[in-house]
Design a protein around this nucleic acid. Structure first.
Lengths: 247, 247
DNA sequence: CGGGGCCTTGAGGCAATTCAAATTATGTGG
DNA sequence: CCACATAATTTGAATTGCCTCAAGGCCCCG
């Protein structure tokens, strides 16, 4: 048997953040049938009300999930990084409740629901890993509510940047290589602020030496101090919390 | 065989909102071993960092889930009603990331993780129902982020009340019987506002005829109009969206 | 019938918004 | 590779929704 295609390796890395997988599990995932696809910047993968029959895994790039308010306001609800599954929800809920849009040119693997469900039925340890992954995503949604509901603008923005940076590092990126492809509009919509005010806060963070770069690509030179002012503690991400404690 | 205890019937009703269950499924759930318990008003069921080995199902009453910010601010992240499972997360993630606290005297069923996991392994349709339930909860978390991030105070509060009322109705309560046991502090912490401002908004809603009662027990006399000003549409609750579309 | 939690109201302040305009990047076709 | 169009950032000034601080009143429960 030849070595399988490594395209889904980032997905494996994501699953391994939260649960143990043995080699046979990994092989089974890598052998999943999938269709690879590329999308340009600001391209919609799904819209509210869609009825997808495939799950999308983000292999490279960045994707954002959002929902609209009646007055036209957009709330970004999640930002996905390489390795993240984007819409496992539709394995069990038919209709999409959010839109998915790329933040930059990105690559995806589309996996048919049936193929994924078969795998989960066959290999319980993969099913557990996927459950953990979904539940961590859920915990992240809650942290975003806390962020938007109870933290001031500066803290809120810092927290968002910390989380993304932390998740990218957990996925194997080196801190010094991390570049976030966010415009100030995206940060505003993720933090529940206006772009104007985001701008002022970013300049403040910059003058404090906590932030570098601009034009949609930020770097974080002083991770430790940023973390403090961001009220960021990574408990809620459950990285390294494996579920081997269960029988 | 005698008719099983009906204590877990509200849980069955919750699961049936999102997925189909046959009679044998229902029986299997009702026969789960559980410990019944009562708790008074404002009693903690769990705190951040706990390592529970049982899942709690809310049989009657109300429970709230919250997380704290560094400055002492509390963000309520979910409000649970009779039938809701409170912490299925711990089937797959060992440590609690939020606190759970009763809003009034309530009853619970505690089910050992092992017993629940065995049931899920044995009856895939129940596993699917539970997945749907978890994913709907996840969608609700996202709606709360939108609510807090992008809606003004009046809309935000109205939306919160609409959602609770809708979910209670879906669980079988008659609209005219619905009484929400929330203080203005709870509404404030759920909506990301201060109690003072909540008070002013409630009085405004009251003067518009959209709200009745006070002292921690609200009624909604004009559901239709409240729904409009609340920017509430129940798509995100996926009630009645069954997953029989698969295979 | 007394006390503590919860609600109510007012006045002043501030963080974030709105509106508007100038400046700087980005990308594309010639 | 430059010119041009468009998108994104930056800055200022005025406004406002919500907050803070403070005090008084209600009402439930012991």
């Amino acid at each position: 048997v030849s070595a399988p295609d490594q395209s889904l390796a980032p997905f494996v890395r994501r699953l391994r953040l939260h649960a143990d997988l043995v080699d046979r599990d990994v092989e089974a995932i890598l052998r999943l049938p999938f269709v690879k696809a590329k999308r340009g910047k600001y391209s919609y993968l799904a819209r509210e009300g869609d009825l997808p029959n495939k799950c999308a895994i983000l292999l490279s790039g960045f994707v954002e999930r959002h929902r609209m308010a009646a007055d036209g306001g957009r709330q970004i609800l999640a930002i996905y990084v390489a390795g993240d599954p984007l819409n496992l929800d539709h394995l069990f809920l038919p209709t999409a409740d959010d839109a998915l849009e790329t933040l930059k040119a990105s690559e995806f693997a589309f996996i048919r629901h049936k193929d994924l469900l078969d795998l989960l039925a066959e290999r319980p340890s993969i099913a557990r890993a996927m459950m953990s992954s979904l539940l961590v995503d859920s915990s992240i949604f809650r942290e975003w509510t806390l962020n938007v509901g109870r933290r001031d603008a500066r803290t809120r923005i810092a927290h968002l940047l910390c989380e993304l940076s932390f998740r990218l590092e957990a996925q194997g990126y080196k801190p010094e290589d991390i570049v976030l492809p966010l415009t100030q509009y995206h940060i505003a919509d993720a933090a529940g602020l206006t772009p104007v005010h985001v701008n002022r806060m970013l300049r403040q963070l910059q003058s404090e030496g906590l932030l570098e770069g601009k034009g949609g690509s930020f770097k974080l030179p002083d991770w430790t101090r940023l973390r403090e002012i961001a009220d960021f503690s990574p408990h809620y991400l459950h990285a390294g919390n494996h579920n081997s404690h269960l029988q």
